[in-house]
Nucleic acid binder design. Structure first.
Lengths: 351, 351
DNA sequence: TGTTAGCACTCATCCCTTTCGAGTGCTAAC
DNA sequence: GTTAGCACTCGAAAGGGATGAGTGCTAACA
């Protein structure tokens, strides 16, 4: 498929895309022939453009307008043409530095990542907090809050903490809770929460005694709760900077959808297992994103993929830069989280 | 000041405001004379409108347009004219019901409140989480997380829970932490955090021994952290529904400001001590809000004002409905929080 | 055979004018 | 004090060139 296009066509296509990314205006043959990297007359270029249009890489808003890249063109561009190293060492250094200053809490790091991501790219950024599914228990506290409810605080080996309100059966007293949490701390530390729930709990049943059902229920709801990954969105309003969204109705429907939030976690969870993913226009499932491109990247802590982040922008986004920035951010975030969370990486490897 | 306007002028002004709130279009004399509640000819109305314009209650976009209410008019309307009981018992019941279903966590209740508030009014809603400044300690856990950091989990008598990452001096071991938290639980329960920090700590110093400084520092940073009130915003994009924001640049600058978030906490903390506050157009400090009105209301748990919420909309917002809804929401939220948090109200009163 | 100049043609955009109508203010009559 | 009548204002919408960026095609050139 690559060889469908000769070098010259490739160059012209790249030039058109580069130009269009910058200006959002249809690109004409004269404009192109003025560029230094293309030494052809407008007429020749027109012939090539005509071919490219026929091949589906270019589109014409109307007869007497310039050409606009099609989604197929962006796809080709992303796969084969763009130069990825659009990010300087300085910028990379800046990202790392800036992230490492925020040493306090995971949530803050995620927020800061989202802010930087949107700040550097000038698109909407989306960053998912790391999931704890495979984290190992380090400490559990059950703190009585009121009749019928207790707060479960879980610290994992990755240093992440999570507190969840649990319902507690009527009969259970504060002493019971203390007993249970003591037992849990003695026996369950070092296991994955899912392991505890599925594997270990049955073995421990007799030892726990009459409260076994309570514990099981608590673990179940904990399990569910730890699976939830929050999502930080920054710069949604930046979409209004682009002429693509100069129509208020369009802007509104996009922003509402972002605000609802459901789309976002879908978008981020779609690329499990993949390192980096670029979805262009209609490649997105969500119809609200059909004029957008979404670039997502997963990040790892201690070798394990624990979350992802991404950028949402118009289809004519600066893919090269975005991909480079995301690569860098993913790496930095991974490092920062790993180091922040201390022992995380070592303990995670022994199965 | 009220008596500057006779009954007829008042009626006309109210009619104009009502109409303008609905349509956002300048109101003319003919339109008014067609209304059932005004039995005057257009010419007569024109005379009155001319007077009202001279008095500063109406403005004319241009000579041959209808009249638009001025901010002064809205002020008068809010203070003297509007009928407040714009909300039916059914709606009030709906609000209460809907909130009470969300019994799990304070954060969820706040989110749901914000969602409903924006849903019912169709404006942007802003809801602050309750502050814990005067809450009394019920339980403290210090959980070692990694070298140099520990998680402090505080449960207050109001049932609110809050966890904060604390820096811990190098020398402190897990055992130390346990000892400290045990001591704190024994001696500090029932006090306000600020009391503990300022009053009780000095008295306890010797008893705590060498870790006193550590405890002091921890309490200090806890204190600061518990003072933070998060803010939930829902429906910011709804502003785009209004013709006032059909200009994308204007919409963008408004949304960016909302997204930055700082303005919001300012707006909400301005009305401490006041029950309900209406700020119209330029009455707002923030220039970004000069075309908006902000209605805020505080809410109480156990007799004490612990937070506030509000609605942001165009100056021609439906003040009557908004005020009524906010009143109801404030009451419901207070009740739900009080009941949710169990013992909250009783214990809060004994000084 | 590939490249280029020339030319007729298309069509969105800009600007100007005209028309339309909602709304006003004033005056005179009731 | 209220109202009908009327001239006047002015924004919004509709129409109509002119402009110019851009195309496709053809024929000539290297």
């Amino acid at each position: 498929m690559t060889q469908l296009l000769d070098v010259r066509k490739m160059n012209i296509l790249r030039a058109i895309i580069d130009d269009y990314i910058l200006t959002a205006a249809p690109v004409g043959s004269r404009t192109l022939s003025k560029r230094d990297d293309i030494e052809l007359s407008p007429a020749t270029i027109r012939n090539e453009m005509s071919d490219l249009t026929e091949l589906g890489f270019l589109e014409q808003p109307h007869t007497s307008a310039g050409r606009v890249p099609s989604e197929k063109a962006y796809r080709l561009y992303v796969n084969n043409i763009m130069d990825r190293a659009h990010i300087t060492d300085d910028e990379a250094e800046y990202i790392r530095r800036h992230l490492e200053q925020r040493v306090s809490e995971v949530g803050d790091v995620i927020k800061e990542t989202a802010r930087m991501l949107s700040g550097i790219t000038n698109y909407t950024s989306v960053v998912q907090s790391p999931h704890l599914r495979n984290a190992r228990l380090k400490h559990i506290s059950l703190i009585p809050v009121s009749e019928g409810s207790a707060l479960a605080v879980v610290v994992t080996n990755s240093g992440a903490t999570n507190s969840t309100m649990l319902k507690v059966p009527k009969g259970i007293t504060a002493q019971d809770l203390e007993k249970i949490s003591k037992l849990m701390n003695e026996r369950m530390i070092g296991y994955r929460l899912t392991d505890v729930h599925k594997t270990l709990l049955p073995l421990l049943r007799e030892e726990i005694g009459e409260q076994a059902d309570t514990v099981a229920e608590m673990l179940g709801s904990l399990d569910k709760d730890l699976g939830k990954q929050s999502v930080e969105v920054v710069g949604a309003s930046k979409m209004l900077d682009f002429p693509e969204y100069s129509d208020v109705a369009k802007a509104k429907s996009f922003l509402s959808e972002i605000e609802r939030g459901e789309m976002l976690s879908e978008v981020l969870s779609e690329n499990e297992g993949v390192e980096i993913s670029v979805r262009i226009g209609n490649e997105n499932d969500n119809p609200e994103l059909k004029d957008c491109s979404v670039v997502t990247v997963s990040y790892r802590v201690g070798g394990e993929q624990v979350g992802s982040m991404g950028v949402i922008g118009p289809t004519r986004m600066d893919y090269g830069k975005v991909v480079a920035v995301l690569r860098c951010m993913s790496e930095s975030l991974g490092k920062v989280l790993s180091s922040m969370l201390g022992s995380g990486s070592e303990n995670n490897n022994d199965q």
